[in-house]
């Protein structure tokens, strides 16, 4: 897939001297859903704001569809839609008017049919003549998305679209995002819900303290980093691991009723067969076997906590 957003060595230092972005390089491919994960204050919103023109970069370049966001901002911005994190809407305005305004602001000729399509897609058509203040929080979020889509952008930035949204609405939001992807829109969303990235993203970027720690295919990331654990539950608790079984990968549960074996799914040999044979040879009787795979959340916590140690930085694709 061709690159649609090309971010090169992007730096942003605010007037107070705070460096929110410390040289981010990232290529976003046309048609993908990229999730940017990171804790609060990681620089996710600054990254989006700088691409969209709300803040000016201190250094580095961004191009959207080949257009530089500073020197050729009109062409670049015309391709972008932005859904901000906060619900920033005019309370007394009607839904249809505010969406119409957004379309015009981006220089597109009025086209009520196009707006109807967007509003129907977001289940807002019935509410088109309602004042925004009369809408629920979830509906207001949809209005923000409708405004961002009013000019048919090729790239849509969603800054924490599901922050403070209930589970049902979050699922709705995911469906909306999936529908937009089907229409060919490239979507970049920030989130700190790992579940969200896991559920909808094609690729995942992890950002912390203004640096992009990695960008990687979601499935590859899971496979590459996914540690698995095998829990061997015993019928009789033991006090210590028998000498014959001693290894770095094996630990005993606190109550002594289970052996916990960590292994790597990527490895040629997982060592499970040998383990089970050794367990039998040691005369232990098995009650049950349980396997667990680490979630993206565990991976993320590991990354963000270890980001000072360079050896834990993962050389994924497109890393700065």
């Amino acid at each position: 897939m061709p690159t649609i957003v090309d971010i090169k060595n992007l730096r942003k230092a605010y007037d107070g001297g705070f460096e929110a972005l410390k040289g981010v390089t990232l290529e976003i491919r046309e048609g993908e859903i990229l999730a940017l994960l990171g804790p609060n204050g990681a620089g996710k919103t600054t990254l989006i704001s700088t691409v969209c023109g709300i803040t000016m970069p201190t250094d580095g370049t961004v191009t959207v569809g080949g257009h530089d966001t500073v020197t050729d901002y009109r062409a670049a911005r015309a391709m972008i839609g932005l859904v901000p994190q906060e619900i920033n809407l005019e309370p007394f305005e009607k839904v249809i008017n505010t969406v119409r305004f957004s379309r015009g602001l981006f220089g597109r000729k009025p086209d009520d049919a196009a707006l109807e399509k967007v509003l129907r897609q977001l289940s807002l058509w019935d509410k088109k003549d309602s004042q925004i203040r009369a809408l629920s929080g979830g509906m207001k979020r949809r209005v923000l998305i409708a405004k961002a889509l009013a000019h048919d952008p090729r790239v849509l930035f969603l800054d924490e679209p599901t922050a403070g949204v209930d589970v049902e609405l979050r699922k709705d939001m995911w469906e909306i995002v999936a529908g937009l992807k089907a229409d060919g829109v490239t979507i970049i969303l920030t989130t700190h819900y790992i579940e969200e990235a896991e559920a909808i993203a094609d690729r995942i970027g992890v950002i912390a303290k203004g640096e992009l720690l990695l960008v990687e295919d979601k499935a590859k990331l899971m496979a590459r980093m996914g540690k698995k654990q095998l829990e061997v539950q015993l019928t009789q608790p033991i006090e210590a691991i028998p000498a014959a079984l001693q290894s770095d990968a094996l630990t005993l549960s606190k109550d002594g009723s289970a052996l916990i074996y960590s292994y790597d799914t990527r490895g040629e040999r997982t060592g499970i067969t040998k383990l089970l044979a050794d367990v039998a040879a040691a005369g232990l009787v098995l009650a049950d076997l349980v396997t667990r795979q680490s979630s993206l959340e565990d991976i993320f916590v590991d990354l963000v906590h270890d980001d000072n140690k360079s050896d834990t930085k993962l050389g994924g694709e497109g890393v700065a």
Binding site: C52, G53, I54, Y73, R74, A75, A76, R77, A78, I80, L82, P84, E86, N88, L89, E90, P91, S102, L105, F106, G107, K147
Partner: peptide, 17 residues
């Protein structure tokens, strides 16, 4: 001032104008 106050100014700043 009103767009600044309610936050809708983001739209003016991100528009191709």
């Amino acid at each position: 001032y009103f767009p600044k106050f309610i936050g809708t100014i983001f739209e003016l700043l991100s528009a191709p104008i």
